[in-house]
Amino acid sequence: MTDLRDIERLVNSADQWEPPTEAELAAAPLLEGWALIKDADDEDDLPVVMGIITGHPIVPDGTIHFGAECFAMDPDWTWIMTMARLYRLGEPIWANPGEVYGNDD
Rank of each mutant, 00 (worst) to 15 (best):
S13Q: 13
K38W: 09
A26N: 11
G51Y: 01
W79E: 00
A27G: 11
A84Y: 02
P47I: 01
D6I: 05
D104Q: 13
P57G: 12
A95K: 08
D44G: 05
R85D: 09
V100R: 05
I93A: 11
T54K: 15
L86T: 01
G62W: 09
A27E: 15
G55P: 12
D6R: 11
G51K: 01
R88T: 07
W77L: 04
L4G: 09
Y101K: 10
L31Y: 04
E24M: 14
E8I: 07
F66A: 06
D6W: 09
L30N: 05
P20Q: 05
W94R: 05
L46T: 02
A35W: 00
I64Y: 11
W77N: 10
F66D: 02
M83L: 11
R85M: 10
I80F: 02
I52R: 07
D76H: 08
P97Y: 03
D104A: 12
A28G: 09
D39V: 03
I53V: 15
A27P: 06
I64W: 09
P47A: 04
A23V: 12
T78C: 10
G33F: 04
D74N: 13
L4P: 11
A40G: 12
H56N: 14
L30S: 06
I58G: 02
E99P: 02
W77V: 03
M50Y: 04
I7W: 10
P29Q: 08
A28Y: 08
N96C: 06
P75Q: 03
Y87T: 01
W34A: 01
T54A: 15
W94N: 04
I53Y: 01
M81G: 00
W34K: 03
R88V: 04
C70V: 00
T21N: 14
S13W: 04
E8S: 09
R88S: 06
D44M: 12
L4V: 13
D15G: 08
P60S: 08
L36H: 04
D104M: 09
M83G: 03
T54H: 15
R9L: 12
L25G: 03
F71A: 00
A14V: 05
L46I: 02
I7T: 09
S13A: 14
D61E: 12
A35K: 06
A68M: 01
I64E: 13
I93N: 05
D39Q: 10
G51V: 03
E24Y: 08
R9D: 12
P47M: 03
E18Y: 09
Y87L: 03
S13L: 02
P75F: 03
L10T: 00
E22N: 07
L36M: 13
